[in-house]
């Protein structure tokens, strides 16, 4: 029972990160109908930048801020320089270009930093508090929950309560009409990519201390888990992606805790297959008219 409780909290901690990462995927999917397969690599790149600044200045929080800012810049640049010029006649093109970006980013990171794991420090202790002899949560887990909650609330406010959020939703929903009504659709896309990449960077900064550390490929498994989370929740649903993230986090935590850590990726694959075959629109989708 103690183990179950510990694994549950551990799973919720991981799940919060997957939720944030899945949310970033959903943001871009809703705006452009592209799944950003480069998001893992982009997050690692900004995390490298953040930790370089941290080790140069000795301040974790400066590095943290740099990583998020780098995410904003990298996302905007990716949209303006590459993604805007992708031919959308086939849905494959966006995926292939994103994969090209993965190769570029991983190659460049490997050239600058080398292909060995580098330690990724955490700003708070990762030792769990004990309540009645049961290990529950660490300070770092609390920080993860708080950070993800703040991001989710801020994004929800941005999209539902502000004029700019309305413009972003309008340009995703009906780009041509929005353009006629004077919305800067291209600018909204750039902003969407920047926001999504920044959320991805945040997720990277939150997940890397709990994994093996910094490595050009460090986010590959995280990306697959988060993609699964986004699919479980439905790629079109922001709320669903948060729920999906928590579900995937719990599943991974129980599987690694009871069956062994090496089984975890297999469990993700099984979950992805089951959801895609059973409810391809996600667990929270309403039944839609079938397209032939």
């Amino acid at each position: 029972m103690d183990r179950f409780v510990f694994l549950t909290f551990d799973g919720l901690g991981r799940g919060a990160v997957y939720a944030a990462f899945a949310l970033a995927l959903v943001l871009i999917w809703r705006a452009t109908r592209i799944v950003n397969f480069a998001q893992g690599a982009m997050a690692v790149a900004t995390a490298y930048a953040g930790y370089s600044v941290s080790s140069a200045t000795g301040s974790y929080w400066l590095g943290f801020g740099v990583a998020i800012a780098a995410g904003l810049v990298l996302g905007a640049v990716t949209e303006r320089v590459v993604m805007r010029f992708v031919d959308h006649s086939s849905p494959l093109n966006g995926v292939v270009v994103a994969l090209g970006l993965v190769l570029v980013i991983q190659g460049v990171l490997g050239m600058i930093y080398g292909n060995e794991y580098r330690p990724a420090g955490a700003p708070f202790s990762r030792d769990a508090f004990e309540v009645g002899g049961v290990a529950l949560l660490s300070r770092f887990d609390l920080f993860v929950f708080a950070a993800v909650a703040v991001v989710v609330v801020l994004l929800a406010l941005l999209f539902t309560r502000t004029a700019i959020g309305l413009r972003m939703r309008a340009s995703a929903f009906a780009p041509d009409v929005s353009r006629l009504l004077g919305v800067n659709v291209g600018g909204m896309l750039t902003l969407g990519w920047a926001l999504a990449a920044a959320v991805g960077s945040l997720a990277g900064m939150l997940v890397l201390p709990t994994e093996l550390g910094l490595h050009p490929n460090a986010m590959d498994i995280v990306f697959v888990s988060s993609f699964t989370a986004a699919v479980v929740g439905g790629l079109d649903s922001a709320v669903g992606s948060v729920a999906g993230g928590l579900i995937v986090g719990l599943l991974l935590s129980y599987v690694s805790g009871y069956l062994g850590a090496t089984v975890a990726p297999i469990a993700v694959l099984v979950l992805l297959v089951v959801v895609l075959l059973g409810r391809p629109g996600g667990l929270f989708s309403r039944s839609a008219a079938r397209t032939v």
Partner: peptide, 8 residues
């Protein structure tokens, strides 16, 4: 890593 970046 150079071939990786070149390929990309």
């Amino acid at each position: 890593n150079l071939p990786l970046a070149l390929f990309g």
